[in-house]
Simulated scan of single mutants.
Amino acid sequence: MQLVVARIGRAHGIKGEVTVEVRTDEPELRLGPGARLTTDPAANGPLTIETGRVHSGRLLLRFEGVRDRTAAEALRNTLLIADVDPAELPEDPEEFYDHQLIDLDVLLADGTEIGRITEISHLPSQDLFIVERPDGSEVMIPFVEEIVTEIDLEEQRAVITPPPGLIDDSQAVIVSSRDEEASEPGNDA
């Protein structure tokens, strides 16, 4: 299985280093010296990482055979792709690889079907599930513990407890009316 682990940015300096936008939770594993990565576009690779370092909060890499700024600039916007064994799991049991989450069914805690995860969007502040609804529309669900309460890989499902309005406007009304009922005097629900 192949995973996009980074995108090459601007050249840095004159000796062939490039900035990279990291797209993996395990950069030390996937982007370390000696790692051989395929590329998109394929004509730019494969590339083998010679050195890596952090400078001003950004990861800088130098690849074997890339010795000057011109060669580094030619790689800009190239995606770096690692080959990963599909059976490999992250060390932390609370972490998941994208390929484990794609195609999971997304359900509310009461079993109501929301849709299927078709993509994971990695943003600086948090990751988002892109979920395709049965009607073909999409909804974005933040992959945070307060909303995604359970990931069950055996059952191929993600259980969510969305805040009002996240799924759709009618959900906001349903949740609001439940909250009002629960807060009525004499209702111990």
Rank of each mutant, 00 (worst) to 15 (best):
G111S: 03
L79N: 03
K15D: 15
M1S: 12
T48R: 12
T78W: 03
A172K: 12
P46D: 04
Q171P: 00
Q2M: 10
Q100W: 07
V175F: 10
R53W: 09
R116T: 15
M1Q: 09
L101V: 08
R62G: 06
L101P: 04
A87M: 07
V5A: 07
T39I: 04
L60D: 06
I81F: 01
R62A: 08
V20G: 04
D179E: 15
A11Q: 02
G65K: 01
M140A: 14
R53N: 09
Q100L: 09
S177A: 14
V22Q: 00
T24Y: 06
P162G: 04
P93S: 07
Y97F: 15
H55I: 11
I117Q: 03
P162F: 05
V4C: 11
S56H: 14
V5K: 04
L37T: 01
I147E: 03
V148W: 00
H12E: 13
T112A: 05
A189I: 11
N44Y: 05
T51H: 14
E113L: 15
V148D: 00
Q156S: 12
L104K: 07
V139Q: 01
V131F: 03
D68K: 04
E145K: 12
G165C: 01
S125K: 15
I8G: 06
S125W: 08
P162Y: 06
E17K: 07
D83A: 10
E95N: 08
Y97I: 08
P27H: 01
I167S: 03
R116H: 05
V175I: 15
M140F: 13
L31G: 02
A6E: 01
V131D: 04
T24V: 03
I102C: 02
I8Y: 08
I167D: 00
E28M: 02
L3N: 14
E146F: 03
R58T: 11
V131M: 03
N44G: 05
L89N: 07
P86S: 00
V159T: 14
D40V: 09
R7E: 14
V175M: 12
P41C: 06
P124R: 04
H122Y: 07
F143L: 10
E91C: 05
V66S: 00
I160Q: 01
P185Y: 11
A72E: 00
M1N: 11
V148K: 00
R133L: 08
T39N: 03
A6P: 09
G16C: 01
E113I: 13
H122I: 06
T38F: 11
V131R: 02
T118R: 14
D25Q: 14
D103F: 10
L29C: 07
Q156M: 11
M1Y: 09
I160F: 05
G34S: 02
D179Y: 08
G136C: 08
